[in-house]
Design a protein around this nucleic acid. Structure first.
Lengths: 131, 131
DNA sequence: TCTACGCCCTGTAGCAACTACAGGGTCAAG
DNA sequence: CTTGACCCTGTAGTTGCTACAGGGCGTAGA
């Protein structure tokens, strides 16, 4: 399988595949006589794994750990569960932060009286004399 | 005012202040004979503005626009309102995305039976044969 | 056979928004 | 007179890609 085929099979860009190889997330594939990368089904499986984990918001570092864990089938999956739970906590924190921010921004926008910038409540809120 | 004082007065790191100057967000201040930056109250006000806008999640590019608008006091504040509304929409989208992701991750974690990696539902979900 | 086109290769630089050095200079206190 | 805290410039690192530049390969049509 050439890099373009692998990329389209996993909805990834060609450059991203090469990037994953460069940072050691994908093992270097065999090469054809023309020095083209020749990927196998193991690469397809691994890249699919990476993409799904990324879609779930895991960082590349977390993906790297998950891949290492998934290679050791006999191990208990506590570590896997732990990584996922830490990630969930982070997402919860982000949602909370964004919601608070949303509320404040909404308040700021609501105070706009659509006059000139001189009386703009939004600018005033940001300025040093407000608050 | 020296850079350290300005930084601590605005809860900013010294390097960040220098960075804002470098990218033209803060005007270059006067210098002392020892070549130390000497900031005035205008700098303090401007940096406070920048920090508040950043805390509300505006990008530096948006902050740059807001600063430009706030300098033109006679202008209508429609543009300001517009920038804020666009930003609010983006935040709403981010919250929705994160919430969807959170739900999926929660489901994945809930399926974990705490056995070995070989039977781990989390790993399975990420792998190519699941789903 | 030529050539045009699409794919492939490497390597480097760019994005946001900082952060962290390295390698120096200055200044006030003890 | 030395110690330590602060200041300076400039460069490189962070995350996760993305976008070239400048070349090579392979196949289909004229």
């Amino acid at each position: 399988m050439k890099i373009g085929e692998l990329a389209s099979a996993t909805a990834t860009k060609v450059e991203t595949v090469r990037y994953y190889e460069k940072i050691g997330l994908l093992p270097p594939p065999a090469r054809t006589s023309a020095n083209y990368r020749a990927f196998g089904n193991d690469h397809l499986a691994r890249l699919s794994f990476i993409r799904r984990a990324r879609d779930l918001g895991f960082t590349l570092e977390a993906v790297r750990e998950l891949l290492a864990l998934s290679d050791d089938k006999a191990q208990s999956c506590e570590a896997v569960d732990g990584i996922a739970r830490v990630h969930l906590t982070e997402i919860d924190r982000k949602i909370a932060d964004l919601s608070a921010l949303r509320g404040e921004l909404d308040r700021v926008i609501g105070s706009c009286r659509h006059g000139t910038v001189a009386d703009c409540k939004i600018i005033e809120t940001l300025g040093p004399r407000a608050c």
